[in-house]
Design a protein around this nucleic acid. Structure first.
Length: 196
DNA sequence: CTCTCGATGTTCT
DNA sequence: GAACATCGAGAGG
C-alpha cells in the first residue's frame, strides 16, 4: 500500500535516547504539518544534525539554561524552535532525557504532499524549496510559536515513521555552521543525510 | 560551478 | 556591543 498509510506520531520513547542515534533514525521519517486552514503538508526528512548535552560546545545547552534554551532542557519529543541570524527559524526535536540539553536539528526535507502550498509559502524552484534548515521552516510555516509543542500527539506538527532508509544510503560528516565550537565537537560526525 | 558579502533581530556579555 | 546551528544575490571562472 501507500507509504502514507501510517501517519501515527512516533512515541516519546523514540526520542528518549542518545541524540546521535535519534538523528540517524529520523532520516526517512515524515514531518507532518497541519496548517490553520486544515491543509496537511507532508515532507520526508533527508538531513539531520545531533546536538548532545552540556559538554557539546556546539550545543546551545552547553552555555546553561537560559530563556531561549528552556525547552531544550525539557522532556524529549517536543519542538525546539529558535531564530538565528535575525531572520531564520530553525526546527529541532528535543531528545534524550529532561534536564539533559540535547536535540536534533532538521536540516532538510523533501515535499511528499502539499508541494503547491509549500511553494506559495516559499516561492522558489522545487530543488531549493526545503533543502536547508531555514528554508524548510518557511516552506512549512513553522515558527517560534511552535516552540515547546509536543510532537508525540496529532496537532499542528508531528512526526511519523515513514519508510525505512537502507543503511548504505546514509552518510555522515561534521555539522555545519558551528565554527565557534571546540575542535573535537567541530569535527564530530553528527550530521546525517540520505545520499541521492 | 565557486566565492564573498550583507541582511536582520534576538540573545547573552 | 558581539555573535549567531542561514540564505540569496552578485561577481568571477
Amino acid at each position: 500500500m501507500s507509504t502514507l498509510s501510517d501517519l501515527t506520531p512516533l512515541p516519546r520513547k523514540f526520542y528518549a535516547r542518545n541524540t546521535v542515534e535519534v538523528a540517524r533514525e529520523l532520516l526517512g521519517c515524515l514531518l507532518l504539518r497541519r496548517l490553520p486552514d486544515g491543509e496537511l503538508l507532508i515532507a520526508r526528512i533527508t538531513e539531520t544534525e545531533a546536538y548532545d548535552g552540556p559538554d557539546d560546545t556546539a550545543c546551545h545547552g552547553s552555555r546553561g539554561l537560559t530563556p531561549r534554551t528552556r525547552t531544550l532542557f525539557g522532556p524529549p519529543g517536543h519542538a525546539y524552535v529558535y531564530l538565528v541570524y535575525g531572520m531564520h527559524e530553525l526546527f529541532n526535536i528535543v531528545t534524550d532525557r529532561a534536564g539533559y540539553p540535547a536535540g536534533v536539528l532538521i536540516r532538510a526535507v523533501e515535499p511528499i504532499q502539499g508541494e503547491a502550498r509549500m511553494r506559495m509559502l516559499r516561492p522558489v524552484p522545487r530543488r531549493n524549496l526545503a533543502n536547508g534548515p531555514g528554508k524548510l521552516t518557511r516552506a512549512l510555516a513553522i515558527t517560534r510559536e511552535h516552540n515547546g509543542l509536543d510532537l508525540t500527539t496529532v496537532g499542528a506538527i508531528w512526526i511519523s515513521a515513514g519508510q525505512a532508509v537502507p543503511p548504505w544510503k546514509i552518510q555522515c560528516g561534521p555539522r555545519i555552521g558551528i565554527d565557534y565550537a571546540d575542535e573535537a565537537h567541530r569535527l564530530a560526525p553528527w550530521r546525517f543525510w540520505i545520499s541521492s
